[in-house]
Design a protein around this nucleic acid. Structure first.
Lengths: 119, 119
DNA sequence: GCCGTAGTACGAGAAATGCCAAACTACGAA
DNA sequence: TTCGTAGTTTGGCATTTCTCGTACTACGGC
């Protein structure tokens, strides 16, 4: 499936700001998206619709845009779908270890929550 | 200098939320505070007034409260001063490597900005 | 050409955020 | 006790954020 004519703006690697990245990650819905993308094999893309966000489509669009404008994800149109991938390489080059630390922290927090749940 | 009677609420270690931590760090003024605290020897405290924030006192109070309520800093009154310290141990226990990754990322970003400045 | 699906744009409301000024409180020192 | 310093509180304002519903566009398939 080739890409279509529609193009989306992405910040260049050097324009990615730490503050924007942290802000983007500070929303539970967006952190969820990043976690889902991180679980895929590196470079793999998914459609927006493949990640279930428990909000309306327009809100989903909004969150994906925040992530894209912060430089966390890249998106291209393929057919009617909009495929999304984590910008791992850019993030690791700019902020080594940051993405992993956040994902590890998130996993640890979820693990503790699950442990409390089980009693 | 002993502490005074006034007491401030801090979240327990287990109540610290990753999302709140990331949100607290996503503001440039608050990131600056955390950076300054991190440059001190571990456990060292400073007064709020020792960190220059280029905003009014009431805004400074606001930012310190956000950091405290997110669990990033601890504060106690000593005399007229309110001493602040990074909650390194709690953060490292909950989210290993996260604080260091953010500080390293911030340093890298500042380094790149300085390099651009110098031309 | 027509329909269905995926996602966008726009407008709007509620809430949070960042900022300030002015009045205030708590403490130490003279 | 009086004063100065450090920080708080309150209230207000402008902006941003999160959310939604409705109407819309772009594409693939029939």
């Amino acid at each position: 499936m080739p890409t279509t004519g529609r193009v989306l703006d992405h910040p260049a690697r050097t324009d990615i700001r730490l503050e924007s990245v942290l802000h983007a990650l500070s929303d539970p819905a967006r952190l969820h998206v990043v976690r889902c993308l991180a679980e895929l094999p590196p470079g793999e893309e998914v459609a927006c619709s493949a990640i279930d966000l428990a909000v309306t489509k327009s809100t989903t669009t909004h969150h994906f845009r925040v992530l894209r404008e912060a430089g966390l994800i890249s998106q291209v149109y393929r057919g009617t779908a909009k495929m999304t991938a984590l910008r791992r390489a850019d993030l690791n080059a700019l902020f080594p270890g940051l993405l992993d630390a956040v994902l590890t922290a998130d996993a640890a927090q979820r693990h503790r929550a699950a442990a409390r749940q089980d009693g």
